[in-house]
Write a protein that binds this DNA or RNA. Structure first.
Lengths: 239, 239
DNA sequence: ATTCTTAACTGGTTAGTACCACTAAATATA
DNA sequence: TATATTTAGTGGTACTAACCAGTTAAGAAT
């Protein structure tokens, strides 16, 4: 059982949705899908639940399951996760300064977030993200040494971090949790972002997990309040 | 079946986690919980999955289920969309003050966001959201008169806004776009939220669409920076 | 003592069945 | 005709039963 059945169904359904269906179009009912794929209702519901969570479809009790109005290709805009891509789309020049890169003993916070064992070390990558050469976001990223042995700074220069993690280590982040809070900048942070001390800023805590539910990255970041807007979409799965 | 079984289990487990357990502590295994609650494994897994999604616990294949390191009390306060539900489930008392409710001519901003025609009016609903009687979020919500004719304030008292929109008008929001920015509070806002003027805060702009891609709500809100954390999940399209 | 194997856990996946709750259209009733 | 009522279809909840796939520690073999 290399790939679970329900994940194959997710892929297949997503394909059909993207290529053959329109927004708000009704999908076959669970009982119909069950016949099509020759699986149990449990399996179908696992697949539909995943699609619903990711906002690909929405479900209405008593009515059915429908294609969401948002094209899946358009999602993930506006967040750090696709910082470079998002900015480039808008005709601005995104860039990244890799400031420091070290193998260190983790702080208590980092150790907890990455679920590390006692003697495990982590890579700490400090970056500044700029738009049109203006600093917008300062970030500290922590990666477990155990998952990414022999990672070196030259691996990262000029490349997307996630591309490196994928191509060199086969690690793919499938979900990120982000906690966002409003703060005021201290002196050091305001120097880096080139704004006045005490300016408002977004503090972003971010945890990325792979398909085995293992945390592969933890990042703390601060972003200029005046020129950084965090955009997100919320899907209605409860109610 | 008033409240589903698995939701009761969620509440109970969350209570125990908050009151009796520590971060990274191991929960009983699924088979043990199954015996404790006298339910099927399916039901236990429904509950655990919910807790995992909301970041209350994390699960490791072959090892077990563990309490997350993020303090649950501080998290999940951010999702306005299900503000009341999210809070209630964690043992805190959410409440809402409906301050004013008027039928007005929309400003240019509101008119654009709701895609209104020239003479259409909107309802303006001003609310304060509190947790344990402490103000956390001030919001101004705009609803098109055309979609919700004869909406009156007494409809809203003691009820969830989304329940009213659904039951009285059949309107269901399926997705929300939210833009989030860090700001400092002005005098009026800081008075309402009972913090010092100049304190950091989250400014949230929010647009909700229904299953026909029609904007049914536009909301502006500010939330206390020190006690309001906005949590989101980002999914990766690939895999 | 060290290494290897096995057994007993853990969560993950899948099948099958039954009934509940909500919706909408067909049907019966006034 | 207009209004209830029924009925069939939808997703939601719950149960039972297996087996798969990682993890860990006890035991066997060296």
């Amino acid at each position: 059982m290399a790939t679970p059945l329900y994940k194959k169904i997710i892929l297949d359904l997503e394909n059909k949705i993207n290529n053959e269906m329109s927004p708000n179009e009704k999908l076959p009912s669970e009982r119909q899908l069950l016949d099509q794929y020759h699986v149990s209702r449990n399996t179908i519901r696992l697949a539909l639940r995943d699609l619903e969570e990711r906002g690909v479809v929405y479900r209405l009790h008593g009515k059915g399951t429908f294609v969401s109005t948002v094209s899946v290709n358009e999602t993930n805009l506006g967040n750090m996760y696709s910082f470079s891509n998002q900015i480039a789309i808008q005709g601005h020049k995104p860039s990244t300064q890799n400031r420091t890169f070290d193998l260190i003993a983790p702080s208590k916070e980092v150790k907890e977030q990455l679920h590390l064992l006692d003697n495990e070390r982590v890579y700490k990558l400090v970056r500044v993200r700029l738009i049109d050469n203006e600093p917008r976001l300062y970030s500290e990223t922590f990666l477990p040494e155990g998952l990414f042995p022999d990672l070196i700074m030259s691996d990262l220069n000029g490349k997307q971090l996630y591309d490196v993690l994928k191509s060199k280590y086969g690690q793919i982040g499938v979900m990120a949790f982000e906690d966002i809070q409003a703060v005021t900048l201290d002196k050091e942070e305001s120097n880096i972002l080139k704004v006045k001390s005490g300016s408002p800023a977004l503090k972003i805590y971010r945890r990325v997990i792979n398909d085995h539910n293992v945390t592969i990255e933890y990042t703390r970041a601060v972003a200029r309040g005046d020129k950084f807007i965090y955009r997100t979409r919320q899907y209605n799965n409860l109610v």
